[in-house]
Design a protein around this nucleic acid. Structure first.
Lengths: 170, 170
DNA sequence: TGTTGATTGACAGTATACTGACGATCTAGG
DNA sequence: CCTAGATCGTCAGTATACTGTCAATCAACA
């Protein structure tokens, strides 16, 4: 008995699949970011971490991972690299010896100030090929989808709620 | 002179940035794919490569990278893993000693046949939280955007044109 | 024909991402 | 007080992704 043939599969079906488009768009977005920010030696992930540390000074790594929705293991090496570049510093928490608190250095605040225009150019470029109205529709739907699918990812975004217990150790 | 303060930055601005949403959605999509396909030991990338090899039997690695828009270096290890799992085989091309031709094995065709329903469930789940009409709008706009931004990525999709010279060595 | 330039696969190096495990530490319950 | 369970940072292992380089090979031109 001959083996059953595969159903008709075309690459066009792959190209139109949501998963493929998401992966491809992510590739493109990173590429544009790196191009606009090539003067700064900061990756998109490092940039997001830096912003989050700026917004939440004294945050610890676990809470930071919830705020930016990075895997905690991944974040460890991201933090190491930011520290090696002298953009952040880690100080042990006096009340909990397991925790290391994260702060921007003067250098980190400076690079953030300088890179922001480039990042905004990059973000604009990603959507530039679409008509302004379509950009808004796309971002709106994608925002909804990411939010509604939050729990489907291994590292759900916890945003501000993740910080509720910060400093309430007593 | 005191250092200029950073412009007001909120995490909300980050959460709404295109690049952030694209990265997040990609995370979620991979997570859903792996969950639906956990019985198969195939990653999204390996799946796409397998489909492309099925669609273009005898393709070589460089052209495959153009057809699925993977980096060539990355594709090398992907091919290695697919070969280790006995899903594909590589045969040296008689007319060009640099090239190795890729074909599905019987095993590879079988796994493809079995995994396709799971992949389709995964693709559907990614969009499920949206209303059907919104799904269509999102996919349409994202498809446009990826297409229009194709050249912005380091590894542009070349699809079928990449295959034009296949077998025309004379 | 002989050499230049392009192509192919491979490799080293860096940076996300995730899984699973581990010791150190803290918290709660008894 | 003291132990059971939770949490924190870290590490090992695997899998994309990309940059840049290299030798082998091929094609094209002088």
């Amino acid at each position: 008995m001959p083996s059953k043939p595969l159903p008709p599969i075309t690459m066009d079906a792959v190209y139109a699949a949501p998963g493929y488009l998401f992966r491809r768009m992510q590739q493109i977005a990173v590429s544009i970011f790196m191009e606009e920010c090539k003067a700064f030696d900061l990756t998109p992930v490092q940039y997001a971490a830096l912003i989050a540390i700026h917004t939440h000074p004294g945050i610890d790594a676990t809470r930071l991972s919830a705020v930016v929705a990075f895997d905690r293991s991944t974040l460890g090496s991201v933090i190491e690299r930011l520290q090696a570049k002298d953009y952040i510093e880690r100080k042990p928490a006096p009340e909990d010896k397991r925790i290391k608190l994260l702060h921007l250095t003067r250098s980190g605040a400076a690079i953030l100030r300088e890179i922001i225009p480039a990042v905004e150019r990059a973000q604009a470029r990603m959507l530039e090929p679409l008509k302004p109205a379509d950009r808004k529709v796309l971002m709106d739907l994608l925002g909804q989808l990411v939010d509604l699918n939050n729990e489907a990812s291994r590292v759900p975004l916890r945003a501000e709620d993740a910080l509720e217990h910060l400093g309430k150790a007593g």
